[in-house]
């Protein structure tokens, strides 16, 4: 069959709060779920100013490394109370906050295991197509050292932009859209 051209993307614009902010958006799991953690961070622009109108979405494996999805060749795995998907709006001083469970390790398809990670999309006024990054976890040093994606990055400075630090209630990773500490973004 002939290929169709894909629909071109456009900026989410400044008024996404009308349509895309859900009351349950940040809750990949309920906040009182056992082992629930908060992933938090601030989104910064190239001036170092906060971006107060971004949407941050997350997608990740469950704590056993499973996905409740038919295209997982290991079989769809439902994890009770776990949605896998989170959506936060940075209206709170440029900060996003996602309540979730730490993901398990997932095969990398090349004989190894990926380190625990969360896929992240960032949308905002001034960004015409979503930008994609990943969140890794600082207390997974051994797994991170083996991770095929982290290993593909040029240096530790690049890797550091993806590694969240432990906090009182979870982990924290700021997202720098530009600047000396520009986050590593991925073409998917």
């Amino acid at each position: 069959m002939a290929q169709l051209r894909t629909t071109p993307s456009a900026t989410i614009g400044p008024f996404l709060a009308i349509g895309l902010t859900w009351d349950d958006g940040p809750y990949v799991v309920a906040p009182d779920a056992p082992d629930a953690i908060w992933l938090r961070g601030t989104v910064f622009d190239g001036n170092g100013d906060v971006v107060p109108d971004a949407m941050v979405e997350t997608w990740q494996a469950d704590p056993d490394g499973g996905f409740d999805h038919p295209d997982d060749p290991r079989g769809a795995a439902a994890f009770p109370g776990f949605r896998g998907f989170g959506r936060a709006y940075t209206v709170d001083g440029g900060q996003y906050a996602i309540c979730t469970l730490k993901p398990g390790r997932v095969p990398d398809g090349e004989g190894g295991l990926q380190a625990p990670h969360v896929d992240v999309s960032v949308f905002a006024r001034g960004i015409l197509d979503r930008v994609v990054t990943r969140i890794y976890f600082a207390d997974e040093a051994e797994a991170n050292a083996e991770d095929v994606v982290l290993r593909s990055l040029p240096d530790d400075a690049a890797r550091r932009t993806l590694i969240a630090r432990p906090t009182d209630d979870g982990y924290r990773l700021d997202i720098h859209l530009q600047g000396d500490r520009e986050t590593v973004f991925f073409a998917v």
């Binding site: 001034g126 960004i127 986050t183 991925f186």
Partner: peptide
């Protein structure tokens, strides 16, 4: 200008 990442994506 200040929001779109400047480095080539990986």
């Amino acid at each position: 200008g200040l929001r779109a990442p400047l480095r080539a994506p990986v």
